[in-house]
């Protein structure tokens, strides 16, 4: 079977969960080969192996670390030429999508972004128009390059051979023109990562700026905290918390929207959540059209009371 290249998304030697999901999806198309930009870091390679990587290409990133996407696309092009893979899978994020875009042009290949599933034979499912339609498509030219949204598959902890191979890429000067001048890693909130979380509890303008009820419920449920743009624009939460068209797109098992009206741009970021719950004091709020369960009420009283009951049940 052909190899399937999975581009690893790792931060400080920690492989992020969406990469493990890609390894599981890759098995449907061929044998998973992880591509890691970094040093030979056993914490990373062990993890990739444990989740099914048969091969692990380690591309030394010393020379390309400070540059944006273009060098990675160049290295991947060379790896695609060497391995003729059945597909290249990347995580749908800023970086994954842009590497994919450049790689598609370089290799003369079709591209599919934001897949939520991949079936045998490479048919992908996407959710479009703010989640109102599902689309099935397939790459018909070149090496399928597919970016997959986080939470689209369950990671499978079945070890692969995990054979590590160093790959040396030749990087052109023209790929080294956009420089990462400074990077401030996001401070950990101590809660799950928004895009990876199984449960997301969000607050909007209806919080009036007081996120305590939101955070209390989130912690009781082990959830990530999100926000509407109105809450972000008001300065109550940083932009990295924003859920929606111009923020994060999340697809958790449970999404709880509090004091959020449900504008189309917000829906675009959460409509594919498996279960949707809303608390809003306006029974006419459009968010109620989406919910599995809704409470018409004031979040400032409903959420603390519910949090207390949940804590009690957990004992």
């Amino acid at each position: 079977m052909s190899e399937v290249l999975v581009v690893v998304d790792a931060v400080d030697g920690a492989v992020r969960k969406p990469t493990l999901e890609l390894l599981a999806l890759a098995k449907k198309l061929g044998t998973p080969s992880a591509v890691y930009f970094g040093g030979n870091d056993s914490a990373v390679t062990d993890k990739l192996k444990a989740f099914g990587a048969e091969k692990i290409y380690v591309v030394d990133d010393a020379e390309i670390k400070g540059y944006l996407v273009a060098p990675k696309a160049e290295a991947l092009q060379q790896l695609v030429e060497k391995t003729s893979p059945a597909a290249v899978l990347l995580v749908s994020g800023y970086e994954g999508k842009e590497i994919a875009g450049r790689l598609a042009i370089k290799t003369g290949s079709g591209i599919i972004t934001d897949a939520v599933d991949i079936e045998d034979g490479g048919v992908t499912t996407q959710s479009v128009f703010a989640g109102n339609y599902t689309v099935k498509s397939k790459v018909t030219k070149g090496t399928p390059i597919i970016t997959v949204k986080p939470n689209s598959a369950a990671p499978e902890e079945t070890a692969g051979a995990g054979e590590v191979e160093a790959f040396t890429a030749t990087i052109s000067d023209s790929a080294k023109k956009a420089q990462i001048v400074a990077a401030q890693p996001r401070k950990s909130t101590g809660r799950p990562e928004l895009t990876e979380a199984a449960i997301v509890v969000s607050g909007g303008r209806g919080t009036g700026g007081n996120f305590d009820p939101i955070e209390g419920l989130a912690d009781a449920l082990g959830a990530a905290v999100g926000a509407s743009r109105a809450a972000v624009d008001s300065g109550w939460k940083p932009h990295s918390f924003q859920v929606g068209q111009t923020g994060k797109v999340v697809s958790p098992q449970l999404y709880v929207a509090n004091g959020i009206s449900g504008a189309i741009q917000h829906r675009a970021g959460m409509q594919t959540s498996k279960t949707i719950v809303a608390v809003n004091k306006d029974e006419e709020a459009p968010i109620f059209e989406l919910v599995d369960f809704g409470v018409v009420g004031d979040l400032h009283s409903v959420l603390p009371a519910a949090t207390e009951q949940i804590e009690k049940r957990k004992g």
């Binding site: 800023y94 970086e95 023109k177 420089q179 400074a182 990077a183 401030q184």
Partner: peptide
């Protein structure tokens, strides 16, 4: 960015 706030120059 996905995991950091970055300054990019070119």
């Amino acid at each position: 960015g996905d995991t950091a706030t970055e300054v990019i120059g070119a």
